[in-house]
Amino acid sequence: MFSSKKDPHGVKPAKLSTLIAHNVHISGDLEFSEGLRMDGQVTGNVTGRPGDESLLVISDQGAIHGNVSAYDVIINGRVVGDVMVAHFVELQPNAHVHGNIYYQKLRMDVGATVEGKLTKLDSMQSGPAALPASEVVPALDYSPN
């Protein structure tokens, strides 16, 4: 009845080998491999190493002012810039994204906000393919007043 198996379609397990603490502010582009947990601030682009199944976790204290690119991304903080995700993106309740999100698979919790377009990547092509109008869900702000 209850299974302990993880959803095989979600985020792949990765070792969070790097932490940017809440009191750290980095100015400049950042490239990482494996996993990165972001509790601090980055002004610049944050990119998972190409070819790696990298995981970026942005906590509710974390913020990025720049573009984000990784294999899997979990956002519970703030991103001002476009988010390009090769596999799976999860927007948790405190996520605030001011930019476009390109993804293969998406999970969005109540409370998350997106000010931009959600575009599903076509797995057969290298670039984004716009969602058919029947699949487009407007970004709604469910945050309490």
Rank of each mutant, 00 (worst) to 15 (best):
F2M: 06
K5T: 12
D7E: 14
P8N: 11
G10D: 12
K12A: 09
A14P: 00
A14M: 08
K15R: 11
L19F: 14
A21I: 00
S27N: 13
G28M: 08
G35I: 07
L36V: 09
M38V: 14
M38P: 06
D39V: 08
T43V: 13
G44Y: 06
T47W: 03
T47F: 06
G48Q: 05
G51M: 14
D52F: 10
E53L: 07
S54A: 15
L55M: 11
V57F: 01
I58E: 05
D60W: 06
G62T: 06
A63W: 01
V68I: 13
A70T: 04
Y71P: 01
D72N: 14
I74K: 01
N76M: 06
R78S: 14
V79Q: 02
V80P: 00
G81L: 04
G81F: 10
D82K: 08
D82T: 11
V85Q: 02
V89M: 05
L91T: 03
L91K: 07
Q92A: 15
P93H: 14
H96T: 07
H98N: 11
Y103S: 02
Y103K: 04
Q104F: 06
K105D: 01
K105S: 05
L106K: 07
G111R: 04
A112E: 02
K117L: 12
T119Y: 04
T119P: 00
K120L: 11
P128Q: 09
P128A: 12
L131R: 08
L131Q: 13
P132S: 15
S134Q: 14
S134G: 09
V136M: 13
V136L: 15
P138Q: 14
A139R: 02
D141R: 04
P144Y: 07
P144V: 07
N145G: 08
